[in-house]
């Protein structure tokens, strides 16, 4: 379980380079392009953060809208009622989301498999029902952040880019860490992992907390971008449902899967077909089914399979069945490289 330091450093350098490119973008591309990229990056963040617990951890949470909402509402409340700046608000939102996740993990992680999924959706629905009636946070009216308190276009873009890259870095570090290996071991065979002395609940708890922290951070940027927020748009199941679709299409449990999935769903489906809403809904359904039937490893799984075929026999022992890896289980090659 030694951590390959050099490899990690190279990976980090790659992400740093991507971040630099993104940070330099505002002012150098058209506003419209920048807006599209901003929305795409928000989705990358949401999907990637969900991937941490849903893909890498194998816990299909339907409760993540709680963390998007907690992050967003905390930013708005801190800015409006606390008088803090948006940056402190973002951090506060992420911390609160993590705290909520930590508390929720005690009941929720007593459940496994489908029961966890159902339990987490019950939590999400309760949170939505509660937010609609909570007077302190503006009930169903929601909150309106004063325009002068939100960062300008360029700063907002850089913040969103940084958050999105952070989620990707977090996942790529986790899958290479011994913590990540334990998490995947629990996903693949909880009984065997426990027999080897891994505390399944402990590992899952920290994965959930980290995932919630990142989701809360993204939720905060959503609120800053949206300016006026209300319960249905922040706590709605839309967030987690879309994230799930993106991760499945891109490739569950992989670092690039959520990025590719966000691109396919948000850019290729949502934006390109925005004047054909019905076709869009049908197509995303058909695509999800097609991916799960024909390429359960998602787009990334397909690419890896193709790469493995090209690489040939040399790596055969490692690349055995990478397509099925994500779904049927074995440690998820291609991301871990052991």
């Amino acid at each position: 379980m030694s951590v390959p330091t050099r490899r990690t450093l190279v990976g980090l350098a790659g992400w740093a380079a991507i971040l630099v490119v993104l940070v330099l973008l505002p002012g150098r591309v058209e506003r419209g392009t920048q807006e599209v990229l901003l929305n795409l990056l928000i989705w990358v963040g949401v999907a990637q953060a969900w991937n941490l617990i849903g893909g890498v951890g194998g816990q299909l949470s339907l409760g993540h809208s709680v963390f998007v909402g907690a992050g967003g509402y905390t930013v708005a409340m801190l800015v409006i009622k606390g008088g803090t700046g948006w940056a402190a608000g973002l951090l506060g939102g992420a911390l609160l989301a993590a705290l909520v996740a930590w508390v929720l993990s005690f009941p929720l992680l007593r459940l496994s498999g489908v029961y966890f999924t159902i339990g987490s959706s019950a939590v999400a629905l309760m949170a939505l029902a509660w937010m609609v009636t909570w007077e302190w946070t503006g009930e169903s009216r929601g909150l309106n952040i004063p325009l002068e308190a939100v960062p300008d276009r360029a700063v907002k873009f850089r913040v969103v880019a940084a958050v999105a890259v952070l989620t990707c870095v977090a996942v790529s570090l986790v899958v290479r860490s011994s913590f990540g290996l334990r998490l995947m071991a629990v996903r693949d065979d909880e009984g065997a992992a426990a027999a080897l002395g891994v505390s399944a609940v402990g590992v899952k708890r920290w994965a959930l907390v980290l995932s919630a922290f990142l989701t809360g951070l993204v939720g905060g940027t959503v609120a800053l971008n949206q300016v006026s927020i209300e319960p249905n748009s922040m706590f709605g199941l839309k967030w987690v449902v879309t994230a799930l679709v993106m991760v499945v299409i891109g490739g569950m449990g992989t670092v690039w899967g959520p990025v590719v999935g966000a691109f396919v769903v948000y850019y290729l489906l949502d934006r390109s077909l925005e004047d054909q809403p019905v076709v869009q809904a049908l197509l995303s359904g058909v695509l999800v089914i097609a991916v799960i039937v024909a390429a359960p490893g998602g787009v990334v799984g397909l690419v890896e399979a193709a790469a493995a075929r090209v690489a040939g026999r040399r790596t055969r022992s490692r690349a055995a069945g990478p397509t099925a890896a994500k779904i049927t289980s074995p440690a998820g090659e291609g991301v871990t490289h052991g």
């Binding site: 799930l244 679709v245 869009q280 809904a281 049908l282 359904g285 058909v286 999800v288 089914i289 799960i292």
Partner: peptide
């Protein structure tokens, strides 16, 4: 897969 069916049906 059944989630995909949900989306298709809704559409």
């Amino acid at each position: 897969a059944t989630f995909g069916l949900l989306l298709v049906g809704q559409g």
